[in-house]
Amino acid sequence: MDEAVFRRAARRFYSGGDFKGTVKEVTANRKDGERHCTSCGLPAGVATLSACQRCKAIDRLVFYCSKKCQTADWKTGKPPHKTICGKKGAIAESFLAPKSAVPAAEEEDDGFPPPNPGYKRSPALLHQLKLLKENPQVDYVLVRPYPYEDHGVMLQDAMGGMFFKLCMRRAVCGHSPRQVGMMFKQLEPSAARAKGFGVEKLKKQLFKEYGVDVDAEE
Rank of each mutant, 00 (worst) to 15 (best):
L96S: 02
R121T: 01
R60T: 07
L155S: 01
D73P: 02
D215W: 11
F13E: 06
A90C: 07
T22K: 05
K24A: 15
D2W: 08
Y64G: 08
P117A: 08
A72K: 15
P189E: 07
L129S: 07
P98V: 05
G211P: 05
S122P: 02
Y140K: 02
L131D: 11
G111I: 10
E93L: 15
K120I: 05
V180Q: 04
S100Q: 15
Y210S: 04
A10G: 05
A97E: 10
K201Q: 15
K20R: 13
A44H: 09
D2G: 03
P177M: 05
C85M: 13
A10P: 00
R193S: 08
P147T: 07
L142A: 01
P117M: 03
A171D: 01
I84D: 07
Y119V: 01
Q205F: 05
L49Q: 02
R30W: 03
E106G: 07
D157G: 13
N29P: 00
G160Q: 14
G111V: 08
A194W: 07
K133T: 04
R178F: 08
F95K: 03
P43H: 06
V180Y: 02
G174V: 00
A105N: 05
K99Q: 14
H36E: 13
Y146Q: 08
A90I: 12
P43N: 10
